[in-house]
C-alpha cells in the first residue's frame, strides 16, 4: 500500500480551543520524519488525526489517497504510540498486552517483540499500570516497532526513559527503518539528540505548520549575522529574521534562508561575521512567541 500522506487544511477544535489550524502538507513516505513543536503546539493532535484516533473538525487527511478516520483498510496500516502508549492499558499484564497486539495486528512480529522486550528489560508478568513511567514508554516503543506497520508514529515516546534507554530506542528505530523501510514519524523536543535521524522535519507552532523541509536543507538554512548594527540591518533587509540580539553597537540577527556566495561576499565586504545556526536554535527562534511574526517578509 502507498503511504503517501496528505493533509489538507486539516483542523481540530476542542470545545473552545483550536488545536490545529488548517495544516496542509504532503509526506511522500518511506522516510523518518521529525515532528517538532513546543508543548501544546498541536503535535499530539496532529498525530491523533493521522492515526484516526480523532475525527478532523475540518479539512482532510488521507493515506494512500484514502481518508483515515474509521477506514479499517487504512488504520490497519497505521500505528501511533502516544506518550507512554495507548496500548499500555492498566489492569492487564505486559504479556497479555503483547498477545492482544498479536491478535489484532496482522503485521505483528512476535519474535521481534520478544527481542525488544529483552532489550528494554520489560517485566512481562507485571501489570502494565504498575510499571514505571520509563518502562511504560518502553512498552509503547515495543508495540510501535513490532507492529511493523507501514506508517509508525511515536509521540514523545521517550518520556521517563533515561539516556541509555533513549539511545537504545534510537538505535532500534534506525535499524528497523533500514531493515524494513517504512514511514516513521517521531515527535520530540529533544532535538539535538535525534535530529540526525530525520530526513524531513515539520515544525508546528500554536496549531500551525511553520516549516516543512529536508533536515539537511534546514541545517544549511540558519545563520547568525553579527556586526555593526547598521550594517546588520542593511544586510538582513528582505530576509526572514527569526530573532535579534543587541549589545551596544553590535547586533546579532538570526536569519532563515540559505546564503549564496554573492551574499556571503557582501557580508565579508561589510565586515559582518556569518555563523551557522544549529537546528535546535532554528527551532527555538521559529517557535518563540515574541518573534513568531517579526521580520517576516510578506
Amino acid at each position: 500500500m502507498s503511504t503517501f500522506i496528505e493533509a489538507e487544511r486539516l483542523s481540530l477544535r476542542y470545545d473552545d480551543v483550536t488545536a490545529l489550524d488548517e495544516v496542509s502538507f504532503t509526506l511522500t513516505g518511506g522516510k523518518i520524519y521529525g515532528l517538532l513543536g513546543r508543548n501544546g503546539s498541536g503535535k499530539t493532535s496532529l498525530l491523533s488525526l493521522l492515526a484516526g484516533y480523532r475525527k478532523p473538525s475540518g479539512g482532510t487527511v488521507t493515506v494512500g489517497g484514502r481518508p483515515v478516520f474509521e477506514n479499517a483498510e487504512v488504520t490497519g496500516q497505521l500505528c501511533l504510540v502516544r506518550g507512554t502508549g495507548d496500548a499500555a492499558v492498566s489492569g492487564l499484564k505486559v504479556k497479555e498486552l503483547l498477545e492482544f497486539a498479536e491478535h489484532l495486528r496482522p503485521s505483528w512480529d512476535a519474535g521481534y517483540a520478544r527481542e525488544l522486550v529483552d532489550l528494554f528489560e520489560l517485566p512481562v508478568d507485571k501489570n502494565a499500570g504498575t510499571l514505571s513511567h520509563g518502562k511504560q514508554s518502553a512498552l509503547g516503543i515495543v508495540v510501535g516497532l513490532a507492529s511493523r506497520t507501514p506508517v509508525t508514529m511515536f509521540d514523545e515516546s521517550y518520556l521517563g526513559l533515561d539516556a541509555p534507554s533513549r539511545y537504545k530506542f534510537y538505535d532500534a528505530l534506525l535499524a528497523e527503518a533500514m531493515a524494513h523501510p517504512r514511514t516513521m514519524i517521531l515527535s520530540t523536543h529533544l532535538i539535538e539528540e535525534v535530529s540526525a535521524l530525520f530526513e524531513e522535519v515539520l515544525i508546528l507552532d500554536d496549531g500551525r505548520l511553520v516549516l516543512h523541509d529536508d533536515a539537511e536543507a534546514l541545517r544549511a538554512s540558519g545563520s547568525a549575522v553579527t556586526g555593526d548594527a547598521e550594517q546588520v540591518d542593511r544586510f538582513v533587509d528582505g530576509m526572514r529574521v527569526l530573532g535579534e540580539k543587541r549589545l551596544g553597537r553590535t547586533k546579532s540577527a538570526m536569519v532563515y534562508g540559505e546564503l549564496d556566495a554573492d551574499r556571503r561576499a557582501r557580508a565579508q565586504a561589510a565586515g559582518l561575521d556569518l555563523g551557522p545556526l544549529a537546528l535546535q536554535d532554528l527551532f527555538i527562534h521559529l517557535t518563540e512567541p515574541a518573534n513568531a511574526h517579526q521580520g517576516e517578509t510578506p
Binding site: 522516510k31 534510537y170 538505535d171 534506525l174 527503518a177 533500514m178 540526525a196 535521524l197 533536515a215
Partner: peptide
C-alpha cells in the same frame, strides 16, 4: 551506508547522499 548510519546514528539517506 547502513553500517555507517547505524554506527553514527544518522539517517541512511543522509549517508547515501
Amino acid at each position: 551506508t547502513t553500517k555507517y548510519a547505524a554506527f553514527h546514528r544518522i539517517n541512511p539517506a543522509t549517508v547515501a547522499k
